[in-house]
Amino acid sequence: MAIEIDLNRVYMPSEDVVARVIENEIIIVPLVSGIGDMEDEIYTLNETGRSIWEKLDGKKKLKDVVSELASEFDSPLQKIEKDVIGFVQEVIKRKMLVGK
């Protein structure tokens, strides 16, 4: 079942993972157990995911993230919102992001 995402809420990286930047890529390394389905995995984000993740600073509401991205990218607002929600759902499911 899809996780309910509230655009008025602030989301931030979970303290259960460490996000690093290597060669311009965001690398997410599990810190606590139970993040990956195997113990030695690390994760990267695709380009869309990376643009969204960089804005999840624990201060901005998700709807502001959407409008910031809309001003930066030449893409319809609806599509951006869909991506943001899809991304947030996925990283919450993977315990990499938490709501504030």
């Binding site: 997410i28 690390i42 990267t44 695709n46 995911g49 969204i52 991304f87």
Partner: peptide, 9 residues
Amino acid sequence: DHYVIKQYT
């Protein structure tokens, strides 16, 4: 699961 990519390192 499109945005997050598992890396086997």
